[in-house]
Amino acid sequence: MNGGSPGEIVHFDNVGLRYGADREVLSDVSFTLFPGSFYFLTGASGAGKTSLLKLLYLAQRPSRGMIRMFGTDAITLPRDRLPGFRRRLGVVFQDFRLVQHLSAFDNVALPLRVAGVPERDLTKPVTDMLEWVGLTERMHARPAQLSGGEQQRVAIARAVIGRPELLVADEPTGNVDPDMAIKLLRLFEALNRLGTTVVVATHDVHLLKKVPDSLIMRLDKGRLSDPTGALRYPPRPRPVQG
């Protein structure tokens, strides 16, 4: 079951996805995510960005094709091995998916608690993280008491707190002002420089230019365009710190 080149995190081969008996929302999608790279996923609304990310964060199984993740066939992965894989991911959901009855602090702490980090070891990273996204004051507020942008920042803090191997972010800057958007992008870049592979889905074409060396995945009606082949062959190595 193990395989794939050591220079890949994720590999999609001719992946197709349909919901129920509808038409395919993703067709013949093939690409490789290389470790330490920074990807933007763009495309019109309804092009299938969220659907592709769902396959990446293992919330959905494809209807056809092959997906290899961390060197393992993700299609035949038994249910009880999914948690181990999901803990290597960080996900910013398009609809945030914060736990409504937990405070901002507890939402950000959740991945650490799930992973069994002792209580005494998680207070500092969580408060630091909340400070970084500018939510120190709102730490004890519940999602319903936060603005859309604040909720988004909680969602981002939760996704990056465990320093995942692969960060998947679905429109992570859709609800914040341009300055905050840049700041959050810097957070992703910093994480990327520590070795995390980053995939950011966005409509915002201005954002694409802000990250040098980023690769662009463009979806058009469920099909991925890759005119230069950059999504299949390893890019030139990027410096990795840490």
Binding site: G84, A115, M129, W132, E165, L187
Partner: peptide, 10 residues
Amino acid sequence: PPVTGGSLVR
């Protein structure tokens, strides 16, 4: 970014 010292215990 202030992430946890090491990668998460998996």
